[in-house]
Design a protein around this nucleic acid. Sequence first.
DNA 1: ACAAAAGTGTTATTATTACACCCATGA
DNA 2: TCATGGGTGTAATAATAACACTTTTGT
Lengths: 227, 227
Amino acid sequence: MPKRFPSVAVTVDLVVLTVRDDRLQALTIRRGEAPYKGQWALPGGFLRPDEDLPAAAVRELHEETGVSSDRVHLEQLGSYGAPDRDPRMRTVTVAYIALAADLPAPTAGTDAADARWWPVDELLGGAALAFDHATILRDGVERARSKLEYTPLAAAFCPAEFTVSELRHVYEVVWGTTLDPRNFHRKVTKTDGFLAPTGETTTRDGGRPAQLYRTGRAVQLHPPLMR
Amino acid sequence: MPKRFPSVAVTVDLVVLTVRDDRLQALTIRRGEAPYKGQWALPGGFLRPDEDLPAAAVRELHEETGVSSDRVHLEQLGSYGAPDRDPRMRTVTVAYIALAADLPAPTAGTDAADARWWPVDELLGGAALAFDHATILRDGVERARSKLEYTPLAAAFCPAEFTVSELRHVYEVVWGTTLDPRNFHRKVTKTDGFLAPTGETTTRDGGRPAQLYRTGRAVQLHPPLMR
DNA sequence: ACAAAAGTGTTATTATTACACCCATGA
DNA sequence: TCATGGGTGTAATAATAACACTTTTGT
């Protein structure tokens, strides 16, 4: 077939979210080149010729954070393709969200002058992200927030073994609410398949030792948790 | 910037769903050219050089169905970009779902030898769709099914004014369940913002005249309807 | 002993389910 | 008058929300 179609550059961008210092934070890269030189942007890069979209997301995540995809929840968020979204050329980006437990302090990637975590409320209130990345971040945060309601995804923000109150802390930080510790405990421990007890306990939060749990086999919460 | 990125063809594909003859049906186009010549495929086409993604979806919808985007719910489903998904070239497709009230019998579009509605269960059980369109269709149907739970989207499958039982029929067909007419009636009429009464009544379903409603201003159902 | 966090019990309220029953029309 | 669907009432069950109270650790 002759080339009678417009050529477009396809990129993959990542909304990498974690809970750090009691805030929901996103990973940003400071751009080393024009356009938007010196501004913060979401990590991402070009799709390679023989690479599927999820593979590109895993690769970018590894390049930017040094993290392998184990213990990170990666899912496609959506695609953004306004004709003027990149002044250099026509691009369509496929955005992914990555939810992870507190990651190591980021090391600057190849293209990046610097990399750091930012609380998402600071990024969304005023701070100017490059390209349409504020929109992508906003959509990614909203996706994460609503998925906590009806999936056991909050555990992606926790280490492999965690306590009920660590899990509750994730909900409180991501949603910006407070939850009744007692009702929350009942809800998550009684919802079948949400949590699998390890049998171990920990006192790392102080007070009475707490049961440690791993994520269960459930993929949907029924009924959902309400914000 | 020099072209040091791989060039990819970006297409937009549509999962156009409607409720027809008591079945959930999807619009398909018979391919007139190789590859997959003669097989059924989802409608779609190349993204144009100066076109945003939603605009391309609206344009393709109009070209394939003659329908303008009024009274059709269009939303992005996701992107699919396996390197071998099209044998001719590297493509990434951005899929949209379009939910519409019973549309006119389709007229064949420019590229298409033929176009028709197929019940989705027939398309997903055995019938061979071109490319990765079976996956896209399956994802689109699942998206539509779950969105009926927590949004007032079922009304997109109804004409501008509709009765409660017409709305219930949509749920029953899309979910493949039966619902108690009395409890359903209470639920949808009592959920604030779901339905706006027009004041008119109709007897088009026989029996006692039913109130006609338009869609309300709610965008979320709280609490959700359960399958 | 006391602070701190884990976890259980209890009650009021709200939502869902199942189903009896009445209403308003056309044939 | 009868069939057909529209619509309300009600009681049993289930889930949520609010909060008193007990448990088990560290200091």
